[in-house]
């Protein structure tokens, strides 16, 4: 038991270290100093309150959407449509945020957050969830397709559509101060969304490991047929798991919109919903692991700018490191077998 738990932590950590090692080799090949590059990266990610806030600002949507993806993984589902649920959440939160007037902050802000959460939840549960539960349509296809619909819907709304602000920039009007998530660290983009994300991790952990529903989700994930044979309503579990997952991704969009962007705008290239899949995988679908993985990706993002500014290393190199991480997670079987062998040798000696 202890050895498998240690492996569960060691394997992703080694994946990350290996990817940094390979990334460093690429830095050398590209004619830069890898030590300077990584020092700049770390410095840019954690070196000051401002930099740490930047890291966490990017980590927040990844935490929330990552928790959502991890939840469906636990149920044996592959919700790769977090991006679409994120955008639906952003649309709903932005609309409630700017179009609903005259509410006090303690009503308006929760309402906007709730709108985003519900929009994401329904986007995931109503079509992909129901289709999967009753027709078996594969959620990889349906959630992916629903993502394209959501992204293009958001695009339409702000590129000349009904949510476009006056002027010619493709963006919605700014959300009202009563719907704005206040800054956690003044002078930075880090909002109270961080607290929401940590609370969400606690909630996901509690639901998964301390409730009957969570037990059913995990049972269905381990073996759906066995769960059905044991008398569980697997169709209901699928729809609810998609609902929870979409809710978290929708909340991610709402938090980003109300706390960082303050409006809906053409930010589709950020791809938090897609990165969230990697975050969930790296976090081994464990709520705490997801938080840590999200911080890592936030740090890579915030440090990338510093790496460019201080070490002159192209920012795309950070994409290479991220790609390496994904690669080493995908081949974690290799790391596992090496670990097993060293353990065996140690035991024999």
């Amino acid at each position: 038991m202890t050895s498998t738990r240690a492996t569960a932590v060691l394997v992703p950590v080694l994946s990350v270290l290996l990817s940094f090692l390979v990334g460093g080799v690429i830095v050398v090949i590209s004619g830069h100093d890898p030590l300077a590059a990584y020092v700049a990266l770390l410095q840019g990610a954690f070196g000051s309150v401002f930099n740490l806030a930047n890291t966490l600002t990017v980590a927040v949507p990844l935490m929330l959407a990552g928790l959502g993806v991890a939840f469906t993984f636990r149920a044996g589902l592959f919700n790769i449509g977090a991006e679409g649920q994120y955008w639906l959440g952003s649309i709903a939160a932005a609309w409630v945020g700017y179009a609903v007037h005259g509410l006090p902050v303690w009503v308006h802000l929760p309402l906007a957050l709730l709108a985003g959460t519900l929009a994401g939840a329904l986007w995931a549960a109503l079509i992909p969830g129901v289709l999967k539960a009753w027709t078996g349509a594969h959620e990889v296809i349906t959630t992916m397709m629903m993502s394209y619909i959501a992204i293009n819907l958001a695009r339409y709304l702000i590129e000349g559509g009904p949510m476009m602000a006056p002027g010619y920039t493709p963006q919605s009007p700014a959300v009202l101060p009563t719907a704005t998530l206040p800054a956690l660290v003044p002078g930075t983009q880090l909002s109270w969304g961080l607290v929401l994300a940590v609370l969400a991790a606690v909630a996901v952990w509690f639901v998964l490991y301390r409730t009957t529903f969570g037990f059913e989700v995990r049972a269905a994930g381990l073996n759906g047929r066995a769960a059905r044979y044991a008398g569980m309503n697997v169709a209901r579990i699928i729809v609810l798991a998609m609902f929870v997952s979409g809710a978290l991704a929708g909340l991610a969009g709402a938090v980003q919109t109300l706390g960082v962007n303050h409006r809906l705008f053409d930010a589709f290239n950020a791809g938090y919903g897609y990165t969230a899949i990697v975050v969930a995988l790296l976090g081994k679908n464990n709520p705490w692991g997801v938080l840590a993985a999200a911080v890592l990706f936030g740090a890579l993002n915030a440090g990338a700018s510093a790496m460019q500014m201080q070490a002159g290393v192209p920012a795309h190199l950070v994409d290479v490191v991220q790609g390496m991480i994904i690669f080493f997670i995908a081949v974690d079987g290799i790391i596992r077998s090496v670990l097993r062998r060293t353990r065996k040798e140690a035991a024999q000696a």
């Binding site: 990017v58 983009q189 962007n261 290239n269 950020a270 460019q308 500014m309 920012a315």
Partner: peptide, 22 residues
């Protein structure tokens, strides 16, 4: 001179701020 590429829209403010801070 120095250049930094923004990877996403939420990078604009940190990138501008970083240069100003330095």
């Amino acid at each position: 001179v120095n250049v930094v590429q923004s990877k996403q829209q939420s990078d604009y403010i940190p990138n501008l701020t970083n240069f100003a801070n330095q």
